[in-house]
């Protein structure tokens, strides 16, 4: 699609259907949970050419949605943390092991989320789900969990929660570089009939309204997130698939190399933002 036509598409998407006043929250609000202050805005990492400041998706949500995340009791994502803690000590599989028998306390997972996805010993880029399933199948001799299954979501939410408040810090150089470049290429590729790239929405238009939705920078520091729309927690790949499908394109499978590379690149655009898992979004 030529540039003018694409701009026209965006203009229609952005303006045409806003029927009601947007549900804007307080953009200067501070995210504080139990006295802990989260970094929701900070200077963009060096590799980002077009964006001066990176901003958490929390900032763009309405007052009511923001409030649900500010109190751990109100946040239904914490139910998944509780369930993950139970699973952590449960023996499963032929080897008779639980996660705790090797890793000790769940707190030992602090920091893990900030570096996901990262390259494994064999030089492959793995998401957190891949590491969990590798421990289950290779080390516990248990069955792999489905990417979007209840126990996987509970476990990844609980592991991510152990890093809550720590800055995202994925590696983008060295052995990670080729994956990161693949992810960056995907980020700037226009998909689907609408011929839109991630950047068209989340880089060029964050802060604007898309239909009735307040566009954020499409950051991943909140994941796994509890989405009001899903009435549950969902994985990073679920959200990425949804965003690609929305451009009316064929999309990649959960756990595919493409989505994991895209996850790495998008995560690196949030390096410096606090992990918020489990965050709450609309």
């Amino acid at each position: 699609m030529p540039g003018n036509a694409r701009r026209a598409t965006m203009a229609v998407l952005l303006a045409g259907t806003v029927m009601v006043a947007p549900a804007l929250g307080d953009e200067s609000a501070e995210l504080v949970i139990d006295g802990q202050v989260f970094v929701t805005r900070t200077e963009a990492p060096e590799h980002m050419e077009y964006v001066p400041e990176i901003i958490s998706g929390w900032v763009f949500r309405s007052d009511e949605t923001q409030a649900v995340q500010m109190d751990d009791f109100d946040n239904p994502g914490m139910l998944y943390v509780d369930e993950g803690l139970d699973l952590w000590t449960q023996v499963d599989g032929e080897a008779g092991e639980s996660c705790a028998s090797c890793h000790g306390d769940a707190e030992s997972m602090a920091g893990v989320r900030t570096q996901m996805p990262h390259v494994n010993e064999d030089g492959e880029l793995w998401a957190m789900e891949d590491y969990v399933n590798n421990c289950r199948t290779e080390r516990m001799e248990a069955e792999a969990w489905g990417w979007e299954s209840g126990p996987m979501l509970a476990m990844t939410t609980m592991i991510s929660y152990q890093s809550r408040g720590l800055p995202m810090n994925v590696q983008i150089d060295g052995e990670a570089q080729e994956y990161w470049e693949q992810g960056r290429d995907l980020y700037y590729t226009r998909f689907g009939q609408l011929n839109l790239s991630c950047a068209n929405c989340h880089e060029d238009n964050y802060g604007n309204m898309l239909r009735a939705d307040h566009l954020s920078q499409g950051q991943l520091n909140g994941f796994p997130v509890y989405r009001l729309k899903w009435a549950g927690v969902g994985s990073i790949h679920r959200r990425l698939r949804g965003c690609i499908t929305d451009t009316r394109a064929e999309t990649f499978g959960r756990g595919s190399d493409e989505l994991t590379a895209l996850e790495l690149y998008v995560s690196s655009r949030g390096n410096g933002l606090s992990v918020e898992a489990p965050s709450v979004r609309n």
């Binding site: 239909r211 009735a212 939705d213 566009l215 989405r227 959200r239 949804g242 965003c243 929305d246």
Partner: peptide, 10 residues
């Protein structure tokens, strides 16, 4: 209460 329909993400 006005109910809005979210933009993106399945």
């Amino acid at each position: 209460v006005k109910v809005t329909i979210g933009g993106c993400g399945g």
